[in-house]
Design a protein around this nucleic acid. Structure first.
Lengths: 195, 195
DNA sequence: ATCCAATGTTGACACAGCTAACATTGGCCC
DNA sequence: GGGCCAATGTTAGCTGTGTCAACATTGGAT
């Protein structure tokens, strides 16, 4: 008994798009496909999202909100700032390896570029703030520029490793005599080390 | 007096594609567009490249060949291994900031994934070898796994910084009191530091 | 009960990658 | 020199995708 009105097409679109991103990354999201899956016409999604980009932005935004939440949970769970920081880094790695599609959407798309959604900008900013707070906690007396610098350099190491792995640039290296686990620990060490 | 045969369509396609990549990144390359620009039918490019991916692979391959060449030039120009290494890192940054489109094609596309061109794989591998050699030069006695580990962690820092900048994730931070130049030096320090 | 704003549909346009079938041509071989 | 063939180019068309304008339906506020 198909109804004319879907009920909550908006939420359904976000959910399906999210699933598609998890499966095949941002490229795998086709508005026409989603519409077909949800038994709705190809133009229906445009009643809820200005364009494809807007839908993907919402998916990415949710990812950032979740990430921020997880950052804060980890911070609360660990009294030692250094341990907390290392776990925060592990969390980031976990997101990247467990949900590579979502990770790519969040960090390797042009969604944050010109024309970015306000909501996405805020969510990404909040995520940055939580990360930065974790770094500050290790040295509460440091001035803001130092905290920013340390956050960026550390984050760069972590993020670069992920980017290289996911770009297939490290194929053949993550094996004996250099195991993946060793490499991850080395990356964590460098992420947390120095300035 | 338009001739039926172009003369060297293959080379012309690579050249135009290269220009398009420099201007607007990989997404800006449309086979139909290139064909139109070169005054040739839309199907003509398929006589020289199996598909769009193959053309882009050739452009990327040339980028890697050039990069490897530049790595070797830098190595030859500097007697001090540490100085050479820092200049090598600067070279990588220079490529990323001077030719962001080409950089994205080389390092942030799926060209290296399944179905990669043999030529591209070789060129990318050679590039890695040159980078790795630069790292080894700083400590010739170190065992291979250590060299690989150091190359990966250092490269990760450098690469991640670029990825974050180009992803627009660092907007608003590269300004007073933390200037871009300071940040770059900090990244170079971390890239070259430790294990 | 009525009306309207929200929501959905139909039909279309533009553009992109790609392919099959056909056309032209330059260079090799006799 | 003349003929043949493989390389190279063209035409026409398919599929898939984002997007939009015009029209249809409906649920809920008045």
């Amino acid at each position: 008994m198909p109804r004319y009105h879907h009920g909550d097409l908006r939420a359904a679109l976000v959910q399906e798009a999210s699933a598609a991103v998890d499966t095949g990354g941002p490229e795998a999201v086709s508005l026409r496909d989603l519409a077909k899956q949800l038994g709705v016409s190809t133009a229906a999604p445009y009643r809820h999202f200005a364009d494809r980009r807007a839908l993907l932005s919402e998916v990415a935004e949710r990812g950032f909100v979740q990430l921020t939440h997880d950052y804060q949970r980890v911070a609360a769970e660990h009294a030692d700032p250094v341990v907390a920081q290392r776990e925060t880094a592990r969390l980031y790695l976990g997101l990247a390896f467990r949900k590579p599609g979502l990770f790519r959407l969040m960090f390797a798309s042009d969604l944050l570029g010109p024309g970015a959604t306000p909501g996405l900008l805020k969510a990404a900013g909040d995520s940055w703030s939580a990360l930065s707070a974790s770094v500050r906690r290790m040295d509460p007396e440091a001035d803001p520029a130092t905290i920013t610098r340390r956050t960026i350099t550390g984050w760069s190491t972590l993020h670069g490793f992920i980017a290289l792995v996911q770009g297939g640039r490290l194929k053949g290296f993550m094996t004996e005599p250099l195991t993946e686990a060793e490499l991850v620990e080395a990356i964590l060490d460098k992420t947390l080390s120095g300035d």
